[in-house]
Every structure is written in C-alpha cells, then in structure tokens.
Computed example of a mutant assay.
Amino acid sequence: MDQLMGTFNFDRNENFEAYLGTMGVPYLAKKMMSKTTPTIAIRREIDEWIIEIKTMVMNQTIKFKLDQPFEDSFPMGGGSFQTTPKATGEAEITLFASTQKGDVERTFRILEDELVMHWKNRTKSVECKRYFKRSHK
C-alpha cells in the first residue's frame, strides 16, 4: 500500500467529460472540470489515509480509515453520503458509495509509476479514468 503514497501530477483523461455529463454536471462546469490539471497528494498518518486533490479552482481533502464508513461528498456538488473505503489490491484503494447519483466507486490504483483514478457509476453503467504521473514520493 505504500506505493500509493506520493504526489502525482495530471497527465490525461479517458471518458471524463462524458462521465460528468451522466452525473448531471452542468455543461459549463463539465467543460471547466475537464480542462483542470489537478495534483493529487496521498499520504498515511498511522492508520488514517489522506488524499488531497488540488486544482486552481478548488481543493478537496478526503480523510478516512480503511473499512470504516465516513461522510463524503463530490467536489461537483450533489449532497453528502456515506463512503466505505477498502483496500482492493496491493496498491489500490476503492471508495464505495451509494449516492443520489447512483452506486459509485472511486478507485486509486498504482500501475507502474502512474496513479490511475478510476470512477465507475454502476447504476448508470458509465466509467472514466484520470491518469497522473508521479512527481515524487
């Protein structure tokens, strides 16, 4: 799991704008979000994971302990909901949630030296990926 820790700079999207559209994000917000180049910092303090997502427009910090539900929200609005984080692989954490927008999974996975943020809405059968290059550990 230590492979997940580090700072990552945005590289590219795959189906991101279409995913946002099915999640009900308005046109202008969707266009703006698809043009952002976030930086993600992942660290662990004892048994608490902290994921910081920073853009020029807004920042989001997600704090959690594995297997313990926590109050969460999407950066694009839509209210709060309970999320359960799980270690789903050797270098992978998935956040599972049932939201007003559907059953959603957000997976943070290391593939070689790249962070892949994989979003799935199982209810609407849509998914996207955002890729990030490691800047430093």
Rank of each mutant, 00 (worst) to 15 (best):
P38G: 12
E105I: 00
F70M: 05
G102N: 10
F64R: 07
Y27T: 06
L115N: 06
S34A: 11
T7M: 12
S73V: 01
M117K: 12
I62S: 04
G24T: 02
T36W: 00
F81Q: 11
P69Y: 04
G79P: 09
S80C: 12
L115I: 06
V57G: 03
I42D: 01
S34G: 03
M32D: 02
K63M: 11
A91G: 10
D103T: 04
M32F: 07
F16D: 08
T84S: 07
E52T: 10
E14N: 10
E105Y: 04
F64L: 09
M117V: 15
M56N: 15
R130V: 14
N59G: 15
G24I: 01
D113K: 13
E90Y: 06
E71P: 06
S73A: 13
R43Y: 04
H118V: 10
K120D: 09
G78D: 00
L28K: 09
M1T: 15
F16N: 05
N121H: 01
N59C: 13
G24D: 01
I93E: 00
V104P: 05
L28R: 05
E48F: 00
P38Q: 09
R109E: 12
E127C: 08
T36N: 07
E45Y: 06
F10E: 07
F74I: 03
E127V: 03
N15D: 15
A91K: 12
I50Y: 03
A97M: 12
T39F: 01
E127S: 14
A18V: 09
F108L: 02
T55W: 02
L66Y: 07
F10V: 05
M33T: 11
A29H: 00
V25R: 00
F96M: 06
F16A: 08
K31I: 01
I50E: 03
E45M: 09
M1V: 14
F10L: 06
Q82E: 15
F16T: 06
F96V: 02
K30V: 05
K31N: 04
V126H: 11
N59T: 13
S98D: 12
E17R: 02
T99L: 11
Q60P: 07
S135T: 13
Q3D: 15
K30L: 08
T36R: 04
D113M: 10
V104Y: 03
T39L: 01
K65T: 10
K35C: 10
F132G: 09
M56H: 15
L115W: 04
T84D: 05
Y131H: 14
I51K: 03
R109S: 11
K31H: 07
P69E: 03
R44Q: 04
I40Y: 02
Q68V: 12
T123G: 08
R122D: 01
M76R: 02
V104F: 04
E114I: 12
G89L: 04
R12Y: 14
P38E: 11
T39P: 04
I110Y: 04
D47Y: 02
T55R: 03
G77Q: 03
K86A: 08
K63C: 11
N9G: 13
Q82I: 10
L20C: 05
K120G: 00
K54C: 08
R12M: 14
D2C: 11
K120L: 14
T36H: 02
M117D: 08
T37K: 13
Q82H: 10
E90M: 09
I51Y: 05
A41D: 09
